[in-house]
Simulated assay, not measured.
Amino acid sequence: MVKVGIVGGTGYTGVELLRLLAQHEDSEVVAITSRAEAGRRLDELFPNLRGYYDLAFSEPDVDLLASCDVVFFATPHNVAMHLVPELLAAGTRVIDLSADYRIRDAELWSQWYGEPHASPELLADAVYGLPEINREQIAKAQLVACPGCYPTAIELGLIPLLESGLVEPSNIIASAASGTSGAGRQAKIDNLASEVSGSFKAYGVGGHRHLPEIEQCLSLLSGSDVSLTFVPHLLPMVRGIHATLFARLNKPGEQSIEDLQRLFENRYRDEPFVDVLPNGTFPQTRAVKGANHCQLSLMIPQQRDTVVVMSTIDNLVKGASGQAVQNMNIMLGLPEDRGLRQVGLLP
């Protein structure tokens, strides 16, 4: 049985980890930390977990966490980078759901997060936890940086096009919209139901922290610098991301939509959590709600020079905690879908 620790268990990604791991036959959560809730029973804060766990939140204790086989960090940025070095030294495997180890360049990380990185020596060793491109590296990793939610939806939608060199990498556009849970569980006026209900707005237009992560991943895939215009939006719903991606074909007219459909189907044929929909069918966020799936579809509108890819995920599952469990399974040699067989919730 895999012993699991979770640092930062009171947020949405923390409770989503607990929900998924409660159905994981090969794991046992033995420690969950929260300074603010230390001593409080888990099921008092999260009544949906009643009967699944007999645990209370505790103060972060490095010795206790180091006794675990795997530790998840479901924390804001600036937490994991202070504790991870000690856990790695103790031989514990770490999966970080925050942004602390996603960007390889420490100076670039500091530019976007406004402070020096506390353990920059580990950035080169952290494996970017997108299984669809790094499965072999994840299997050998001690430290995995779980991708962000927007990056997951956008990267999965663009990987086949950039790997094959079919699109111009210097002018890609991503217009993506997320439910309110993407902003976390802390109280914010902008996320109140009365503020978001019946409304739709853009934010972070001048620069979003996920941008350098996305450009880094896609540039490595394409072999040249990728320049992305990324505009996120806030949807008046709790879960889900819908990303609409626009890329200019290098040789318009040479590839039909049928050609690109085959490209995507062949690229993801053996991927358990990526579903390329039939041509002419468009993904919906509700179809992936609660599931560790990404659904994709694509079109070449009016047969011109731009391919449009649509990508949907649940931001808390494939965009965070589900992908983290998927990474754990790969790291430990378990079936990749262990604990992740949930079907999307309808309605």
Rank of each mutant, 00 (worst) to 15 (best):
V2C: 07
G5S: 05
G8M: 00
T10N: 00
S27M: 08
V30L: 12
S34H: 12
S34C: 07
G39W: 04
L42P: 13
L42W: 10
P47C: 03
D54Q: 10
D61P: 03
S67G: 14
S67I: 04
C68R: 12
F72Y: 11
V79L: 08
V79F: 08
A80H: 04
A90M: 01
D96W: 08
Y101I: 09
E107H: 11
E115Q: 14
P120A: 10
E121M: 03
C149Q: 14
I154N: 09
E155H: 11
L162A: 07
S164C: 02
G165D: 10
P169H: 05
S175Y: 14
S178M: 15
S178K: 13
G179W: 07
Q186H: 12
Q186N: 13
K188I: 11
N191H: 13
S199N: 13
F200P: 03
H210V: 15
P212F: 11
C217L: 14
C217Y: 14
G223H: 01
S224F: 04
V226G: 01
L228V: 08
F230Q: 04
R239D: 14
G240Y: 02
L245A: 06
F246K: 10
P252W: 08
S256V: 05
E258P: 02
D259T: 03
K289R: 14
G290W: 09
H293P: 00
H293D: 15
H293G: 05
L296E: 11
P301R: 07
V307N: 04
V307G: 00
V308K: 14
I313Q: 06
V317P: 10
K318P: 00
S321Q: 10
G322A: 05
Q323R: 14
M328N: 02
R341Y: 09
V343M: 12
G344R: 07
